[in-house]
């Protein structure tokens, strides 16, 4: 495989569904973490309920809309359930409770007694067919793109169309929110909760709104991941996915409108390029090892970003330096 095709494949992943779904999920996290300063380390839990909303709906023979409703409803309930007890406490509690809750959800979905609902460890398959996600696809069959590697088929384009479209919608929504007095209160909570309280803001309510909305966006991302892959299995929704989303948010620039999009594209480009290089070395690297190398690099990258470029790609250096004082 040539170096050019490695680059082409990396671009394909970055602008394809992978990039889009991460951008969507990270947008929710950006609202919570980047704008409001909420340390939600269980974001993957919201993705999980969104995905299982689709899965359960397909299993019951319901429609795709029921799937969305189920996932979003569950995300709102989850957000309230976790938010109400913890958002009045220090940030550390939210961090620990969210990561624990996400893990609980995964373990419960995975457990044998949950099989009738979640399919246990095997999960639920054949989603997109049963829900008819690809049925309205008007894009003719074929290969679209450049050269041999940077190509998408009609199904991929259909997924991308919907997901990137939703990313645009969500980004514009968040942009409108953060530029309003509502967004100003969110940012003040991130900077200093007590100051916001002293100025008459009911910070718990604002935090709850931000948390639930961010979680709902995460659930939408989960739903699309389920639709695109056609299956939902518990082993996918593990804590490292949340951490990857943090990397995306910080890479793009936490608390910037287009940060999650830039972050997701760059993240997948780098990750896929590394993968391509690992698979084309003069010695063999096993899949397990290359997966571990990728994640190790992600971890190092996250640390390096926080230390050396906390403002990310799109952030304002001056603003970030201001935060350090």
């Amino acid at each position: 495989m040539s170096w050019l095709s490695i680059v082409a494949l990396a671009i394909q992943t970055a602008i394809g569904f992978q990039g889009a779904s991460y951008a969507l999920a990270a947008s929710g996290l950006n609202l919570q973490f980047g704008y409001t300063g909420l340390s939600n380390f269980g974001h993957v839990g919201f993705l999980l309920v969104g995905a299982y909303g689709m899965g359960i709906s397909a299993d019951r023979g319901w429609s795709i809309w029921a799937g969305f409703a189920l996932g979003i409803g569950a995300a709102i309930v989850l957000g309230l359930l976790l938010g109400i007890p913890t958002l009045r406490l220090r940030g550390d509690y939210l961090a620990i409770v969210t990561i624990a809750a996400a893990e609980i959800l995964r373990l419960v979905a995975n457990a044998r007694p949950s099989e009738p609902l979640t399919g246990g460890s095997r999960g639920i398959g054949g989603l997109s067919g049963r829900l008819g996600f690809f049925e309205p696809n008007f894009i003719p069959e074929g290969r679209y793109g450049l050269g041999d590697s940077l190509v998408f088929n009609s199904r991929q384009l259909w997924s991308m169309l919907w997901t990137w479209g939703l990313v645009l919608l969500v980004t514009l929504l968040i942009r409108a929110l953060v530029r309003s007095p509502f967004g100003r209160v969110l940012r003040s909570i991130r900077e200093d909760e007590d100051a916001a309280k002293a100025l008459g803001k009911n910070v718990v309510v604002f935090k709850l709104q931000s948390f639930v909305l961010g979680g709902t966006i995460g659930a939408l991302a989960g739903a699309f991941i389920a639709l695109d892959s056609g299956a939902v299995t518990p082993s996918r929704w593990i804590a490292p996915l949340t951490f990857a989303l943090y990397t995306v948010v910080i890479l793009g620039g936490a608390g910037t409108v287009w940060g999650p999009v830039a972050g997701a594209v760059v993240y997948w480009f780098v990750l896929d390029a590394v993968d391509g290089v690992l698979n084309n070395l003069w010695f063999d690297v096993s899949d397990t090892t290359s997966g571990a190398v990728r994640l190790a690099l992600m971890g190092i990258g996250l640390m390096a970003l926080m230390v050396f470029r906390p403002q990310g790609i799109l952030g304002n250096k001056k603003e970030m330096l201001a935060g350090a004082r």
């Binding site: 309003s180 007095p181 509502f182 100003r184 209160v185 940012r187 003040s188 991130r190 900077e191 200093d192 007590d194 100051a195 916001a196 002293a198 100025l199 008459g200 803001k201 608390g255 603003e319 970030m320 201001a322 935060g323 004082r325």
Partner: peptide, 22 residues
Amino acid sequence: KTLGRMTVLDNMLLAGKDQAGE
């Protein structure tokens, strides 16, 4: 407790009472 990563003007506007846009 000034809000460091907000501008001076945003600090002021935040304090406005009973804001509909909140």
